[in-house]
Every structure is written in C-alpha cells, then in structure tokens.
C-alpha cells in the first residue's frame, strides 16, 4: 500500500483531528456557559451558531480544494493534516514546494513523492514552518493584551470603539483592494496561471455580494424578518458564488477570464 495513504498515516491524521476537535468543543461549551452567566440571550447564541455554520461551509470547500491540489504529490492524508491544523492555502503550498526543492533530487509538487525520506522532509518542514504561533501565543498573548489595554485604557470609549472598528476595516480593506486591483498568481503545483487576479469576475463577485447584502438587509428590515437579518451575510456570500457559477457558464472565455493586469510568469 502507498505509504502516503496507509493506515499508519490515517491514524496520525485522526489523532490530530481529534485533538483539535476536543479543543474547539471545549471552548464552544465554555463560551456558551459563560454567555448564559453574563446574560447573552439564547437566540443570539443560536443565531451565532447557525450563521457561523453557513458562513464556513463554502470557504471550507475551498480548503478541501487545496487538499485535493496537493494530493497527487503528497497523498491525501498529509495535506489533510496540514490544512486542518494552522495551515492555510498559501503557506502550506509554499512550505511543501520549498521542502521538495531543498531535497535537490528533482522532486516537486508536480510529481508523486515516492521516497519516504523525501516525504519525511516535507512533513518536518511543513510542521516546523507553521507551528511557530503555537509557541509564541502561549508566551506572548497575555502580555500583549496588557500592553494594548494600557495603551488604550486612558482614551475615551468613543476613541476605543472607533479604533476597534477601524482595525476590522483595515483587514476587510485588504481583501476588497485585492479584488479591485490585485494581480493573480500561478499554481505552484501545475505552474499554470490561476486566473485569480482582479478583473471582471472578481469585481462581479464583490459587487453581487454587496448588492445581495443590501437587498437582503432591506427586505429583513421592511418585512421585519429577524432570521433573515441574521443570515443575510452567509446568504449573500452563497448568492454571489452562484452568480459567479452562472457567469462562468454564460460568458465567453475571453470575458470570463478578463483581468485588468496579468502577471509575468516566473521562470525556473
């Protein structure tokens, strides 16, 4: 049996998934209990749970797509482990491809890794590269929070509210700006252009999502539909994804793939 996907690897994967599930469930139960103690209503808790489920489903499938993209080279279990813990799409692909390049035997993400030693190097590099936050957060977080509290403690609440909203806006702006003016990337597995830069489709996705959100919120407000207000955000995201699928089917390829700027392919 392929060592990348044998029962030994499967057991390792299950142990990792079990550990992170225990942590998530523990904090979930603790937060719900705490919410009840401080008077957060059951409705708020219920809506938070349902809207978070809806919000997460589609991006989770996008993460599954990364696991699939890495699986011809690394098998399905290692990408599954890596994307379940800490991992994100860009970091894991970068770590894996650099690890393979460092072995220097011509291995790359374009071919199946058949040597156990090479595979083990990839495992170590991916784990060590991404695990740093798990070391620094237990050491730094409390002190960091104290520092932030001390800095903002003397200011009035209007200033604190505005600054906390503005930090969120800074994060959201990064993604909005990328959809408006970003240049796309090349797939580090296949070497092909990803068509993920800013262009007609990213703008259509962004605008559809904004319009859907405005319409759904207006409907919820006018007809006093409380549940719709709570789920307007995940529904807008899914509706916009539906628009993208329809556009991909009806638009000619030249228009569908239209991007404002195309990057130069990297050589080598």
């Amino acid at each position: 049996m392929d060592f990348r996907e044998d029962s030994f690897m499967l057991i390792l994967g299950l142990i990792v998934v079990l550990a992170i599930s225990v942590q998530s469930v523990f904090f979930l139960i603790r937060a719900i209990r705490r919410g009840r103690e401080i008077g957060v209503s059951s409705l708020v808790i219920k809506n938070t749970v349902i809207s978070s489920v809806l919000f997460t489903l589609a991006p989770s499938l996008a993460i599954v797509a990364t696991v699939v993209a890495l699986s011809p080279s690394l098998g399905i279990i290692l990408p599954w482990i890596r994307l379940s813990v800490i991992g994100n799409i860009t970091q894991e692909t970068t770590a894996a491809s650099t690890a393979l390049a460092s072995v220097g035997d011509g291995s790359s993400l374009s071919f199946a890794v058949t040597d156990k030693g090479t595979f083990n190097v990839v495992m170590w590099v991916m784990a060590l590269a991404s695990s740093f936050p798990l070391l620094i957060i237990p050491l730094m977080l409390k002190r960091l929070q104290k520092g932030i509290k001390k800095f903002s403690g003397n200011k009035d609440s209007k200033w604190t509210d505005a600054m906390s909203a503005s930090a969120f806006l800074g994060l959201i702006s990064a993604f909005i700006a990328r959809s408006i003016a970003g240049v796309g990337t090349f797939n580090s597995v296949s070497g092909q252009y990803n068509y993920d830069g800013a262009g007609l489709i990213s703008a259509a996705a962004l605008v559809s999502s904004i319009i859907a959100m405005i319409i759904l919120q207006k409907i919820a407000l006018r007809y006093k539909i409380k549940w719709l207000d709570s789920f307007a955000m995940p529904m807008s995201m899914l509706l916009a994804m539906g628009v993208v699928i329809v556009l991909a089917q009806v638009l000619p390829e030249s228009l569908y793939q239209l991007e404002w700027r195309m990057p130069q392919p990297t050589v080598g």
Binding site: I176, S179, M241
Partner: peptide, 10 residues
Amino acid sequence: KQVLPCLFGA
C-alpha cells in the same frame, strides 16, 4: 476561486 470577494463583499 472567488470565495474571498464573495465573503468580504457581504
């Protein structure tokens, strides 16, 4: 491919 603009638009 467009999950992020769809998510952040809303």
